[in-house]
């Protein structure tokens, strides 16, 4: 049996990065233009997206079509909270790196994993019943979340029914406390624990032996310390398990996988980090779709 080594991942990411910076290539131009246009657009306001938004911004299939044309929709959680995050540029915290990070992650993910995935982003509010149609949901900058009671109920029902929440990109004790407070409202009495290194999450697709701290783009390029706060020097992959021992929430704390996915094409962003981010991302997808 042939296995895929980290080198293959590295080459894939490196090749993708090369495409991103090479001038004159039609694909990258088109992609770049599209991204620029999307960056200029405001993300959809919280709530059910309109038909226009579905078609133009979210690139979702028509509303009357069941979400079954693809096996996987990379779904971002839309939640209430303070505006925050440098890279959110004043937009809501949930929309940090949106949608470029999502699309770029999907492009690479589909090269690494044999997966029938929808090529575009998919943002769903936590209090939207539609959330249950996407059993794997990704949330970022959760240190700024301040969930409403409806969102609490929605997320709790999602997780108890069997959904999985992937959390990323929040740093330090203050943001941790905010996230912990909200999760305690969602899942009272369910402790947050370190996911042990021998957990299948770290071997489902790639063998991950070391948890690396993935820096944001600027710190990665400029070679500054990888942490963003003095109290955020150690990266963690933590989890919340249900009473049957099943993993419901994967918490990437003191790290920013999303930035590594989003800026993997930047030749100055260290390959080491983007490779790790894609490996862990692929593992989270494979594990989340099989456990």
């Amino acid at each position: 049996m042939r296995t895929i080594s980290w080198r293959r991942v590295a080459w894939t990411v490196a090749a993708f990065a090369a495409v991103g910076v090479s001038a004159g290539t039609t694909g990258s131009e088109a992609l770049g233009t599209e991204w620029s246009a999307l960056q200029a657009q405001q993300p959809p306001p919280p709530g059910r997206p309109s038909a226009q938004e579905r078609a133009d911004v979210l690139r979702l299939p028509p509303e009357d079509e069941p979400a079954g044309r693809h096996a996987f929709y990379w779904t971002r959680a839309v939640y209430s909270g303070s505006r925050g995050g440098w890279w959110g540029r004043g937009r809501p915290a949930w929309a940090t790196d949106f949608p470029k990070g999502d699309r770029q992650f999907l492009v690479v993910l589909q090269r690494l994993v044999q997966l029938d995935a929808y090529d575009f982003e998919n943002a769903v509010r936590l209090d939207d019943p539609e959330l249950r149609r996407f059993p794997l949901v990704y949330a970022v900058e959760v240190g700024h979340m301040n969930l409403t009671d409806e969102e609490i109920r929605g997320l709790r029902g999602f997780l108890e029914a069997g959904g999985m929440l992937l959390v990323d990109d929040f740093w330090g004790g203050r943001e941790w406390a905010q996230f912990e407070y909200n999760m305690a409202r969602v899942l009272p009495n369910r402790p947050i624990v370190e996911i042990p290194p021998d957990h299948p999450l770290f071997s489902a697709h790639y063998q991950i032996d070391e948890i690396k701290q993935v820096p944001a783009r600027g710190r990665g390029i400029r070679g500054r310390p990888t942490w963003e706060r003095p109290d955020a020097q150690t990266p963690h992959v933590r989890g919340i398990f249900d009473e049957e021992g099943r993993l419901m929430v994967v918490i990437n704390f003191n790290t920013d996988l999303g930035d590594a996915w989003e800026w993997a094409e930047d030749p100055y962003y260290p390959l080491e980090y983007s490779t790790f981010a894609y490996e862990l991302g692929a593992n989270m997808i494979v594990y989340g779709m099989s456990h």
């Binding site: 996987f72 997966l115 059993p135 069997g162 099943r246 494979v286 099989s290 456990h291």
Partner: peptide, 13 residues
């Protein structure tokens, strides 16, 4: 199963 699908997760579960 030929590819990751939620059917794997939920049938096993």
């Amino acid at each position: 199963e030929g590819e990751p699908r939620f059917e794997v997760k939920f049938t096993r579960r």
